[in-house]
Design a protein around this nucleic acid. Structure first.
Length: 656
RNA sequence: GGCGAGAUGGCUCAACUGGCUAGAGCAUCCGGUUCAUACCCGGAAGGUUGAGGGUUCAAGUCCCCCUCUCGCUACCA
């Protein structure tokens, strides 16, 4: 038994809605690791939870006509239900609306401010309106926007910034001297090359544009930036105190041994989070693993398509451990995995039903058929037994090696190799043939004992991944799950034990037609729900944007809008998003570059009459001069629609 | 555009610093078996390792070039 501690966390789930299967998989992965470590003798603390602040939630709550707190209470409940329905063994479910957490975040923010890590941004001359970006003094190039090189203006709003640059060198050094810190290593390179080496920019850590967040206690116009709020859950959840009065739990468990997160938020966990910790004077987490995603077959999940997969639906239909098995098995280390009803069916049938379920079933059946269910070791050994025993007792080491590398999918495959070896052993020994010879009765008993013992060991290895199944197996064998201390010893199954009379089907084989019928049923329900939602949404399909300052008519009159006809258009080859159009405005033609390639093809642009801002100062984009701006409407998802006159108008007509 | 990763049998992937007929699982076909959930065991077929060129006794592995895919990032007048 080891006496070391092991602190593992998942990312906390954002409470903007019920998470689909792709978001639920992380908790199962973490759970397998946590259970495995516990079984290895580590003192494990496993924390998960919810991230409950932010503008999106504020808006969703408003739409639903309830308070943000009511909204997140509901969603956090759903998320916790999913964690529970997947049988995950978290020790703490942390919510960022927890009052103690909120208090600590405020204290940390104040501490950072007091020690000069956070400063109030002075906006004069620092906001580049066209770029919609805030810049700090250090970032300005000759006092101008470092992006477009134009004048920056005083902004109306103030914000607090965190001096990331102060800690950047220290972080670079840490990452370089701790190669295991960021996993997989490809992520490490991305962080270094894109953020750290080019020079880390200071981060804006407060917002004034919405209210649903933790207020900055010494300046309550501001709420704390959601990431600063969210990331700190890893320490506040175990009793960190900004004044240094940490709980014993914190002293014991921090730093975390593993932050398990999705690959999309690696940046926050490997750059900002370590820097916040440095500023607090706390040690950094030992490892951050940005796992890939489990994607639903081809394309996006959407309710209107009826193809959203939810962990609880799947667990209800396939069983909890079948879903766990699929997630763990299919979850690759570096590339995204796929989940579909077909793939689920295939995995369950071939691995769980055929290999494992059938093995347990046939073994128990034989014990009952030949020995009335009593499994006895008569020690009549043959050479063929040796390899079986070697494989069975050697599996633990292989599984450990894979787990140490966080290759959880590979580790469960090792366990199934053990079961496959058992099936082969049955074929090699042919118990039904031995049974015909009364003189070989003791040999037959030994064979069945070896099988039963092998299964008991296999089930014990499986416990961390499929706890319920492991339990069901040993119950049928009338024994108990074995500790890892005894997992490499063959022969501990008590000789003379009587197994159950009638073996239970662990995993029934699935008929693909039944499965697809279930998929259709769920799809129909989702579509129906989506239909209702869509109709409601139609009436309410509006977007609120950040209000800008009031302008005078004179301000407006400075803008020259005209109808332009696109007479030619081509893609800007070097860019993913830019189209270059020749726009006829009256008798002249202007060249305008627009970031709309993802929404319009060059061909379909030609002939359109669009609204153009004509007197905008020319700028160079991707090396091409742009002499104006095509106006578009943009929805919440970033979809663009060109604005065109609703009646036929000549090119050059003024818009006023 | 910048940086990075990758392209291997129908599918998913493997092959450490170049080294014996390029491996495994699933799917397919054939055979065996009957204790068992039409299951299990064995075997076979299937790859000029994205294209082309080069280095070497030897290249999936190294170099050059081309095509394509993906990730992060920038651009979005």
């Amino acid at each position: 038994m080891k006496n070391e501690k092991y602190y593992i966390t998942t990312a906390i789930a954002y409470t903007s809605g019920k998470p689909h299967i792709g978001n639920s998989y992380e908790i199962v992965l973490a759970d397998s690791i946590a259970r495995f470590k516990r079984k290895q003798g580590y003192d494990v603390f496993f924390q998960t939870g919810t991230d409950e602040h932010g503008q999106k939630i504020e808006l969703k709550a408003e739409e639903a006509g309830i308070t943000p707190k009511e909204f997140v209470d509901d969603v956090a409940g759903q998320i916790k239900d999913i964690c529970d329905c997947l049988n995950t063994s978290y020790d703490k479910f942390m919510r960022t609306t927890n009052p103690e957490h909120e208090k600590q975040v405020q204290k940390m923010f104040k501490k950072f401010y007091d020690q000069g890590d956070i400063y109030k941004g002075a906006y004069e001359g620092m906001y580049c309106t066209p770029c919609e970006s805030f810049w700090t003094e250090a970032q300005l190039v000759d006092g101008k926007c470092p992006d477009c090189g134009r004048e920056v203006k005083p902004a109306k709003e103030e914000a607090y910034f965190f001096k990331m640059s102060k800690y950047a060198d220290q972080l670079i050094d840490y990452i370089n001297t701790h190669p295991e810190f960021i996993q997989p290593v490809s992520r490490k390179n991305e962080m270094m090359n894109n953020f750290l080496l080019p020079g880390l920019q200071d981060l804006c850590v407060s917002r004034t544009s919405f209210k649903w967040g933790i207020p900055v206690d010494f300046d309550d116009k501001h709420v704390v930036y959601v990431w600063l709020d969210a990331l700190t859950n890893y320490i506040t959840g175990i009793g960190f105190d900004a004044d240094g009065n940490h709980s014993d739990q914190y002293k014991k468990f921090w730093p975390a041994d593993l932050h398990l997160i999705g690959k999309d938020i690696v940046r926050f966990h490997t750059i900002y989070w370590p820097i916040f910790l440095m500023a607090l004077g706390e040690p950094l987490p030992k490892q951050v693993f940005g796992h890939p995603w489990l994607l639903a077959g081809s394309g996006k999940m959407s309710k209107s398509l009826g193809n959203v997969l939810y962990a609880d639906d799947l667990a209800k239909f396939f069983g909890v451990d079948a879903v766990r098995y699929f997630m763990i098995h299919e979850m690759p280390f570096e590339n995204d995995g796929a989940i579909t009803w077909d793939l689920m069916t295939e995995r369950i049938n071939s691995d769980l039903a055929n290999v494992l379920g059938n093995l347990v079933n046939r073994t128990i059946s034989m014990s009952n058929k030949y020995f009335g269910g009593v499994v006895e070791n008569k020690n009549v050994n043959e050479a063929v037994d040796d390899d079986l025993k070697a494989v069975v007792t050697g599996t633990y080491k292989k599984v450990c090696a894979k787990m140490d590398e966080l290759r959880v999918a590979d580790s469960i495959t090792e366990i199934f190799n053990l079961f496959k070896r058992c099936n082969k052993y049955i074929d090699e020994t042919e118990p039904w043939a031995i049974a015909k010879d009364e003189a070989k009765k003791d040999r037959l008993a030994t064979v069945l004992y070896n099988l039963t013992e092998s299964i008991a060991i296999g089930a014990s290895l499986l416990e961390a991944y499929l706890p319920e199944t492991a339990d069901r197996i040993v119950k049928q064998l009338n024994t108990e799950l074995r500790s890892f201390d005894d997992i490499e010893k063959f022969g501990l199954y008590p000789s003379g034990t009587k197994v159950v009379e009638k073996p239970e089907i662990l995993f029934a084989r699935l008929d693909i037609n039944d499965v697809l019928a279930e998929a259709d049923r769920i799809a129909a329900i989702q579509k129906a729900e989506a239909g209702v939602v869509e109709e409601e949404a139609k009436e309410e399909n509006v977007i609120d944007i950040e209000p800008k300052v009031e302008i005078t008519y004179d301000d407006f009159a400075k803008l020259q809008f005209q109808v332009g006809e696109i007479i030619a258009c081509e893609e800007v080859k070097k860019s993913k998003k830019l189209l270059c159009s020749q726009v006829k405005i009256g008798s002249q033609t202007k060249q305008i570059v627009s970031g709309i390639k993802l929404h319009y093809s060059a061909e379909e642009m030609v002939g359109k009459k669009v609204m153009v801002l004509v007197n905008l100062k020319p700028a160079t984009l991707a090396g091409i001069v742009s002499e104006g701006m095509l106006l578009c409407a943009e929805d919440a998802d970033g979809n663009l629609a060109l604005v065109t006159p609703e009646k036929e108008m000549p090119a050059g007509a003024e818009i006023c």
